[in-house]
């Protein structure tokens, strides 16, 4: 329980950090992360090298990711257990957000349709 409170300080993650951490479920180097994020987010999120470098530095400093190997001079990172816990916390938050949003979305679509008919 105490542990959970400590991890809460990282939440909510920014959209970029969330996707970077999602990508790091497997070991990847920086450019690999950029490509994967663009692909899994259906091109809604693009991570530039400046943004990624900063995210890598702070995530590593906080012990949420760690270097696991090196591939052709490129360092590969992966989530640590602490990082996995934080990511679970973020996904839970997103689930609540989306559960709240979906019924409202239906209402909104109906309202917008009625508006068009008038």
């Amino acid at each position: 329980m105490k542990n959970n409170i400590k991890l809460k300080k990282y939440l909510p993650l920014t959209e970029a950090t969330y996707y970077i951490m999602l990508a790091l479920i497997e070991p990847l180097h920086g450019y690999g992360v950029m490509q994967k994020v663009e692909q899994i987010s259906q091109e809604t999120v693009k991570v530039g090298p400046g943004t990624l470098y900063g995210a890598f530095s702070s995530l590593e400093k906080e012990g949420l990711i760690e270097m696991v190997s090196e591939e052709q001079r490129r360092k590969c990172y992966q989530l640590t257990d602490k990082g996995r816990q934080v990511l679970v916390g973020q996904i839970d938050r997103l689930e609540i957000m989306s559960a709240n949003g979906l019924p409202v979305r239906e209402q909104l679509v109906i309202m917008l349709d009625n508006g068009k008919k008038r």
Binding site: Y31, M34, G48, G50, L52, Y53, R74
Partner: peptide, 23 residues
């Protein structure tokens, strides 16, 4: 052109990342 400001970093990793992404 893009300018970044950094004074505390591992230069090799940093430049590699920018190079990989086309910069």
């Amino acid at each position: 052109y893009r300018l970044d400001y950094q004074w505390k970093m591992e230069k090799e990793d940093y430049l590699q990342l920018f190079g990989d992404s086309g910069w």
